[in-house]
Design a protein around this nucleic acid. Structure first.
Length: 221
DNA sequence: TAGGCCATCTGGTCCT
DNA sequence: AGGACCAGATGGCCTA
């Protein structure tokens, strides 16, 4: 998950870094933080989430020093210790957030090239995925009640016209290519009325991909 | 090399 | 008072 961090800290400008405070005096608390990741409480057997815990402590140490201090170097000991503790909590909090994102990635359909989704892609993907599943239930209910013929979207049954799920799966499910101005601020998340709500450009294409998705193409590993 | 993504530090604000 | 949360700043890594 994490690439090598060799030589990162050694390249840091020591003068700018020392303006903050010496972080090495907090070695113990930081080590305890690394091993105390709350990811296990999430209950998802997900390798990406675990990798953070099992990373080489030396690499973790170097990675943790990447952030740049902005202090004036005149922090009192009490204030400094408080800041160090706050940094630890903040780091831990962000690790928890990342673990949650990893768990979320685990329950989303995998892509053919097994590319790890970015954070924003994961959130958008999950958003669309939930919507697709909701639509599946809704349409299934409609079909059961005999109203499906009037409620189906136009392109839903034209499976042959659907684009290949391989290359554009990510762009659809994550809306990754629509980072310019996608609208995710729905007033009612349970009823995404239009494809435009998700930044989709072509409604037909949406339903083609959606059909591929609900028929299992995107779920095959 | 520029841009995207990410981890970390930091100070402010709100809450308990 | 201390912790949680947040956003800005900074710098490293990776890729086109």
């Amino acid at each position: 998950m994490c690439s090598t961090m060799e030589g990162i800290y050694s390249d840091l400008d020591s003068s700018s870094y020392d303006q903050s405070f010496s972080i090495t005096d907090d070695e113990d608390s930081r080590c305890s933080m690394i091993t105390a990741s709350p990811s296990s409480s999430l209950g998802q057997p997900c390798s990406p989430a675990v990798s953070q815990e099992t990373a080489v402590p030396e690499q973790q140490e170097k990675k943790r020093r990447r952030g740049r201090g902005k202090g004036d170097g005149a922090l009192h000991t009490v204030k400094k210790n408080r800041r160090v503790k706050a940094n630890d909590r903040e780091r831990n909090r962000m690790h928890s957030l990342n673990d949650a994102l990893d768990s979320l990635r685990c329950v989303l359909p995998a892509f053919p090239d097994d590319t790890k989704l970015t954070k924003i892609e994961t959130l958008r993907f999950a958003h669309n995925y939930i919507w697709a599943l909701s639509e599946t239930i809704r349409i299934a209910d409609l079909e059961r009640t005999g109203e499906a013929s009037t409620m189906h979207p136009a392109g839903l049954n034209r499976v042959a016209d659907a684009p290949s799920p391989g290359s554009d799966a990510c762009s659809w499910m994550s809306s990754g290519s629509s980072s310019s101005s996608p609208s995710y601020g729905l007033s009612n998340p349970s009823s995404p009325a239009t494809s435009e709500d998700y930044g989709f450009v072509q409604a037909d294409s949406v339903y083609h991909n959606y059909h591929n998705f609900v028929t299992g193409i995107y779920c095959q590993n």
